[in-house]
């Protein structure tokens, strides 16, 4: 395949990706429960934010639940106790996640590889501990009954209105992630991931680029958490727990790390399994685990990654 054909192909792929996402998103609430669809969107955003870090910067964070969860709690608290407008509450959640991201990033980026992952995990456990201990978070109960409020005069209490609000935020964030990947900054990230010493020898302070990638990823994970608090109207310990950090790795790998749509597809798979198999109780974990092992063994590039590779071979 020539370079030009490759570029056209990648242009087409981006168009197809967008068309698919938009079309599926518009009809979704008529096909499935809006709350379920919102849950998928929130997790898809979370996984896409995570993929920006793992897939495009090569950094494996094992503490992303801290950003999702802390933003969910802060947004919930701001909306419930201070009665702030929905966008302001969400902004507060994202701001907290961003600050946490900066803190995590500065500390964890002093190490690389498995040590980096372990530091993010350790810091996330500290956040979990704080959430359990602080009185306003509701302990085991979490925050329940978070009000959705109104947006531009539209009552978000209506599930369809809330869904399309969630969807709009998701699309905006999804667009920003794509933009980031293809930006001058994204080019440097790719260069660092592929050959870090070479990037240094070209004069790049690679740590600063990694830190910015980490903070962007944390902010967007926080946005997913804020959205979750408003859309599903609760924030619980499950959102800050380490299992959540593991789940996002799973979603990303299932769908295809380093692909545009992969994380969203992975989120759809995992949330669907958890939702529709919930009658089976703890067997869900066994099934999810088995599916994960089989998928990783059979399709190392993830679902979307394998489909992409198939098309690349054909043409």
């Amino acid at each position: 395949m020539t370079g030009r054909a490759r570029r056209v192909w990648s242009g087409q792929a981006i168009f197809v990706a967008w068309a698919t996402v938009v079309a599926v998103g518009i009809v979704a609430p008529f096909v499935v429960y809006p709350v379920f669809a919102m849950n998928v969107l929130v997790m898809a955003l979370f996984a896409s934010a995570f993929n920006l870090l793992l897939g495009y910067s090569g950094l494996l964070s094992f503490g992303h639940a801290a950003f999702l969860g802390s933003a969910a709690y802060v947004t919930g608290w701001a909306a419930k106790s201070w009665h702030l407008p929905v966008l302001v509450s969400m902004g507060a959640g994202v701001a907290v996640a961003t600050v946490l991201g900066l803190l995590f990033g500065v500390l964890a980026l002093r190490r690389s590889g498995i040590y980096f992952a372990m530091i993010t995990l350790g810091l996330a456990q500290v956040v979990y501990f704080l959430v359990v201990q602080m009185p306003w978070t509701g302990g085991e109960d979490g925050l329940q009954g978070i009000p959705r409020g109104t947006f531009l005069g539209i009552d978000l209490g209506n599930s369809f209105a809330m869904y399309y609000f969630t969807y709009a935020v998701f699309l905006a964030a999804f667009w920003l992630i794509q933009r980031t990947i293809h930006s001058p900054f994204g080019q440097v990230l790719r260069a660092i991931r592929e050959n870090e010493p070479r990037a240094i020898s070209l004069g790049y302070d690679v740590q600063r680029y990694k830190l910015l990638a980490f903070v962007i990823s944390a902010s967007l994970a926080g946005l997913a958490g804020s959205l979750k608090a408003v859309a599903l109207q609760f924030a619980t310990l499950g959102d800050v727990a380490w299992q959540r950090s593991g789940e996002v790795v799973l979603m990303t790998l299932l769908g295809g790390m380093g692909t545009v749509l992969g994380p969203s597809v992975g989120a759809l798979l995992v949330v669907t399994m958890e939702n529709y198999l919930s009658s089976l109780g703890s067997w869900v974990t066994v099934i999810t685990g088995t599916v994960f092992v089989v998928m990783v063994m059979a399709f190392r590039r993830g679902l979307v990654g394998e489909i992409k590779a198939l098309f690349a071979r054909r043409s």
């Binding site: 920003l176 933009r179 980031t180 293809h182 930006s183 001058p184 900054f185 994204g186 080019q187 440097v188 790049y204 600063r208 680029y209 910015l212 962007i216």
Partner: peptide
Amino acid sequence: SFRFWAPA
């Protein structure tokens, strides 16, 4: 190079 919002 830090402009993550700039187009390709």
